[in-house]
Amino acid sequence: MSWLVEHAGEIAARTLEHLWLCGTAFAIALAIALPLGLFAARRGRVGLPLIAALDAIYTIPSLALFALLIPLMGLGFWTAVTALVAYAQIILVRNVVAAVQSVPPWMIDAAQGLGMTPLQVFLRVELPIGAPVAIAGARVAAISIIAIASVAAWIDAGGLGTMIFAGIERQDIRLIAAGTLGIAALALIADGALRAAEHALRAPISPA
């Protein structure tokens, strides 16, 4: 217990670092994946090779991907963000495509037939119908980013991974446990928040 009090400052600082790293990566990943996914969904022929390429990135082990980026970008925060963004892409893009495809053609037809502009069709029909599917993907992506970010400590990007690596080095199980539990807690909180958002959006479609 006294160990926890003693290390509270470090744990808090590392948690904030982890959150900042993952939050940045998640935001950038979303900003790329949304337009990419919409594009892939609407142009099936371009979409398939794009998804195959992203799939290929996902098969690279996380440690190896960080290592591959070092000669290009050096050590540090932005290298880690780049790797995390790359990992999240396949999950996010795939789900944006699935989200777009979850809106049946007749629904688009009805919306257009009633006189909605393309923007109105997107905002009033495709977005509310597809959003729960897209958010389900965002949950998986967020959890993956939070977990993989622990490896980022290895390239000096900070975060809770730093405590795990330090714990391994000093053979201090308490450091390892604190880092691991912190990551798990972050993942659970992110998952819960996104699940709540998903539920809120789904609720009206299938009322209890």
Binding site: W106, M107, D109, A110, A111, G113, L114, V125, P128, I129, P204, I205
Partner: peptide, 12 residues
């Protein structure tokens, strides 16, 4: 415009 398969928006 009334379409096959009703065409109501399920979220509204």
């Amino acid at each position: 415009y009334v379409i096959q398969a009703v065409g109501l928006f399920p979220h509204l």
